[in-house]
Every structure is written in structure tokens, then in C-alpha cells.
Design a protein around this nucleic acid. Structure first.
Lengths: 312, 312
DNA sequence: GTTCAATCATATATTGGACATATCCATATC
DNA sequence: GATATGGATATGTCCAATATATGATTGAAC
């Protein structure tokens, strides 16, 4: 009673050849089972599909309808198979990405563009996330990959979860934001120690591993930064600097979207603003798996990772 | 390698139950062959569709895609089957109808409306045909049914073809078109014999059996009509009458679309303008077959067929 | 920690159905 | 009317889908 794609393939062969014998030859089978299969299909539909005049085979009206329907069905089955295999191989699908505001506006989309060229069928959906929620969101499948500036291998603030993996995504340099007319604005590159006397605007160290890293780096450079203001959202930093609250150390890419009320200057190495990807080690969809595999391969070929988009 | 709707039905059962055991019960089969069938499907796609954790079954990303695709495919297969069966039963399909101008404009569409209500999926396509080509067009499958005023049972002008059938479609009365101020315009009903002295406009008797029928009727009424003008297209008759070329006998429904430069009066019975359907006895599509069957049944229930639309 | 129950995978036997070979029947062609 | 062509029918064979039995894993109960 239920039709079956095999029957439809047989039907189409007969409909195209208008001959059971020729169709059977094309299907690499003998003629009787083909006749039987068609008869069975007709019985299931309670409808004749061919008129057999012992010398000529013709399609009935229902047969013509069936030809159109069968073609559409088989084509759709083909597409369905391709689509499923494509998802299975990670060539299509969806990757849910979480990122902090600075990373999202700091060139993440541009950095992803490479992969979009490599796997155009994979949709990437980017959510802006509070850093504190990123690990939780990944663990609970709300996102597949989180981009942030925390290297879980060294992070002690979140419980080191065995299910989570962490990889360096890209490496950018650190800039310092100076107010107009600051004494260091004349230099192209600023050494970290030169900022010892300035007041600093920085992110809350509790919620930002990057802030803790900067603090630690300052201490290693020989001074404990004077904090004039702590902020939650890095977007508000440039306006605070413009208002005279001091200086701020930020990832170089922050310069892309800010006015020229303030000056951006490179900070000398070895200060870096690394961006990491956090992801589940298992239970990752093929698209995510393939994405991470591709990234790992790229990193193997060209390990020196630079700022995704120059902050010029 | 080629997927098969049976596998998809199995897959959907498992995807819905998220359990091989329950799905097998729902499918009235045991669990091992179901597991095998799914494994086979996965092998064909080279893609895992479920993650089995020996306690819980879950869909992979590819499995979710497959669920959507499978639903769409099975629904389409269902629709295809319905559609083919519908065509096979004559509930849907197409009927190509040929008709002469007078019949086409004389209420054919209205007469067909009944059937369109009965079988709304059947499309009826109406072509205007020269009467001389109607039989040929039916025999050569250009049309399925011809409407005209020729009863093939008595027609001797065309070779009586054994493949052709002929049935009365409807019966209308005959009207006479009189010029303004004609002496008979005062009467509601005109007897045929009263028109003996008038000049007549009529269709070519060679191409119109109706014209021959009218001629014969006049002779039986005791006069040979004086023909002032012979026309091919009955549409031109009213204007010729208005121009004073005499009178004309026409089917009553002709009055529907003409101005009041002329007067229409009923002609006394037994003069009738019957409309017949001509069709192939065999090689008719289910839609045509079902249409004719339905008509025959209606005629059996209510044999008195009237003018399809009153010529008021 | 141990046992039990639940659940899917694997092994093996069985059966139904798809297929092939052989043949029959109808008809178009000569 | 003989022949050839092409589909239907009959019958045997073989594979594949299924059932039964069993194993393996694991979550839950105590």
C-alpha cells in the first residue's frame, strides 16, 4: 500500500522508455519482475498508470501525473540525502558563537570570514555575552564556541571543567588609550613602565581575566596601577579617557570604532591580548567539529597568528 | 546506498520515541531489525543520525536535519499518492472542451458550473471551434468533448465513427430574431409557419447540422425558407437582422448578449435547439470518464433538460 | 558496592518477497 | 497464415528483512 522509492525508479524507467523490456535492460534486471513491480504499484494506488496494448505502452492520465510526482519525489530524496550528508560532514549546519563585546566589535566577523569562504553553507550566529556567563552557556549548549580573553588552562576563577577545551584563536597587540595632549602621545610605541605614574581605567578584575592579566603585567613591569575608574563595559572606556580619567590598556582592535578625541598608541611587547575559543570537547555538532579541525590545521600550517584586522 | 521510504518511516519512529524499543513496538516489529535498519540507513549516508549512550538515544545534528527532511519527503509522498489516485479516479485532472461560438456564449460555462462544484479539482479548458473541425479534434485528442448541435446518430455528413459517442447535453428552445417593428413582434410566441413569407438569414447548411435541421423543419411546416443571406459565424446574425435582411431562427440562448435593435420571440414547439456532447468512447482520461458518468447519472435522475441559463 | 532492570547491539534461524528462467498469449507485420 | 515482438504468467531460487535468543552496558535502587 505504501509506495516506495524503488518502485518509483522502476516506474520512471518504464515511463521514459515506454517499454518494459527496454526499461528492464536499463535497470539491469529482467522484464518479469519489472512488470510485477509496476503491477504492484498500480495495485497499491488502485489506478492504472500504463495502457498496455501488447505492442505499445502508453501513460494514462494518472501515469502522467505520477511521472511528474515521481520525478519531484526522487529529486527531493536526492537533495535530502545530500543535505543530511552535508550536515553530517560539517559542510553545512549552524555554529552558535558567543563573544564578549570587545571581541565581537574587534574583528571577530572578519576573522570568521575565512571559514565562511571555506564552508559557505555553515551559518554562524554570533551572540554578545557577558564574560561571566560564557562558560555556563557553552556547557549548557546555548552556544557552541565562546570567544574571550581567558585561557582556561591558567584560569582559576572558573572550575576547570574536563568537558571544556580551549584554543588560542588569534593574538593581537595591546594599545594604550591616551587623552589628547598626553605627554606620551608623541611616541609611536609606549613602554608599559612609562604608564606607572598615570591613573588607569580598567575592567573589573573579577569578571575579566584580561584585566587580571594586565594588572599582573604591570606588577611585573614594576608598578601597581592606580585605578581611577573600574568599568563593566569596555565600550565606555574611550569616553572616560577623553574626560580625563587617565589612560587605559585595551586590545589593539578597540581602536577601530572610536573617535579621535583620544589617541591610540601601541604598547611594547611582550604584552599581548590573546583571544581564546572555549568549546565542549564532546557533543559538538559536525559543523563545530569541522570548524575546530580546520582552525587547528590552519594553526599548524601558519602558527604565527596576528591581529585579525589591522587596527589602523 | 539509495534511501528508501521504509527506512525513513523507521527513522521517524525512532526520532519521535527516542527509543528503539518503543519505536519497534509502535511499528509492530521487534527491536533488532529496527536497529539494523537504522544502522543500514546511517551506513548509506556515512553519517551517524543518533547518539546511543546505551541508556538514552539522541539525535545528532545530521539526525535533526534528517528528521526535517524525512517528514517533508514522506508528506510529499503521501500527497503524490493522493494526487495520482485523485487523477486516476477522475476527481482531478483536465478536460479539454471544444464548443461552437453560439454554445460557448450561450451558457456553456454556466452549465459546467454544476460539475465544477461537484469536482472542484478538475480543470475545464474551453476552446472555440469551427463546427467542421470538432469531430476531427476529438478523434485526434486535441479535445476530449465537443459541444455542438449535431446528433451524430442521425448525422450523415461526417462518417459515423465507431469510436465516437454522442449524448444530449441540454435542450433549449428556438427563438426568432425579428427586426424592430416586424409585424410579428407584437406576439409572445411565433409559429414556424408564420415565417413562411419572410426572408431568412441562416448559417451555411454544409457546416451546420442545426441549419439543416431548421431547413427540414420549415419544409415540414409547409414552406421552403427564402434565404437572403448565408453566414458562417452566427454572431453576425443580429446585426444583419437589424439591417433589414429578414428574420433568423436561432437558439434561445443567443438573446443573452445582443442589443435591443432587434426583438427575440419564442418559436412554438416542437422546434428545439439541442446541444450534444461528442466524445471518444475509449481512450478517455479518468476525468472525462467521470464527467460523462456523472452527467449520465444526472440525466437519469432528472431527464427533462432545460436551457442551461434562461434567456431572459 | 552490589544487584537489578532497562536498553541497545550482536548472533543465528526463518520466512517472505524480489528476482531469474521458461513459457504463454496477443498482435503487428510480412 | 507464419513469424516476430513484447508483455503477462508460472515456478523455482536466493537474498534480505524479520524474529528469537543472548550479550553488553549502564543507570537506579538499596
Amino acid at each position: 500500500m505504501d509506495i516506495d522509492l524503488r518502485q518509483l525508479r522502476y516506474f520512471l524507467a518504464v515511463a521514459e522508455e515506454l517499454s518494459f523490456t527496454r526499461a528492464a535492460a536499463r535497470l539491469h534486471m529482467s522484464q518479469p519482475p519489472l512488470s510485477q513491480a509496476i503491477a504492484q504499484l498500480e495495485a497499491g494506488l488502485k489506478t492504472r498508470l500504463f495502457t498496455r496494448t501488447s505492442r505499445r505502452v502508453e501513460l494514462t492520465a494518472a501515469g502522467q501525473e505520477m511521472e511528474a510526482q515521481a520525478r519531484a519525489l526522487i529529486a527531493q530524496a536526492e537533495r535530502a540525502q545530500q543535505q543530511v550528508m552535508s550536515v553530517g560532514a560539517g559542510r553545512s549546519g549552524k555554529i552558535e558563537i558567543g563573544a564578549t563585546g570587545t571581541i565581537l566589535r574587534g574583528g571577530l566577523a572578519g576573522w570568521l570570514a575565512d571559514y565562511r569562504r571555506h564552508a559557505p553553507e555553515v551559518r554562524t550566529v554570533i551572540y554578545e555575552q557577558a564574560p561571566a556567563l560564557q562558560v555556563k552557556d557553552v556547557l549548557e549548549h546555548r552556544t557552541d564556541i565562546s570567544f574571550n580573553r581567558t585561557d582556561l588552562s591558567f584560569d582559576r576563577s572558573v572550575a576547570r571543567h574536563p568537558e571544556l577545551g580551549c584554543t588560542l584563536a588569534w593574538r593581537e597587540s595591546v594599545s594604550v588609550i591616551l587623552p589628547r595632549g598626553h605627554r606620551l602621545a608623541a611616541q609611536d610605541v609606549v613602554a608599559l613602565a612609562d604608564l606607572a605614574a598615570d591613573e588607569h581605567v580598567m575592567l573589573h578584575p573579577e569578571s575579566s581575566e584580561f584585566a587580571r592579566y594586565l594588572q599582573k603585567s604591570c606588577v611585573e613591569a614594576g608598578f601597581l596601577p592606580q585605578v581611577s575608574q573600574q568599568v563593566v563595559d569596555s565600550q565606555s572606556i574611550p569616553s572616560l579617557i577623553a574626560a580625563g580619567f587617565g589612560v587605559a590598556l585595551v586590545p589593539a582592535s578597540t581602536a577601530r570604532f572610536t573617535s579621535n578625541d583620544v589617541a591610540f598608541r601601541m604598547v611594547a611587547q611582550p604584552l599581548v591580548a590573546d583571544v581564546y575559543m572555549i568549546f565542549r570537547q564532546h557533543e559538538q555538532s559536525p559543523a563545530v567539529h569541522e570548524f575546530l579541525r580546520w582552525r587547528a590545521e590552519c594553526a599548524r600550517i601558519r602558527p604565527a597568528q596576528e591581529t585579525p584586522i589591522t587596527s589602523k
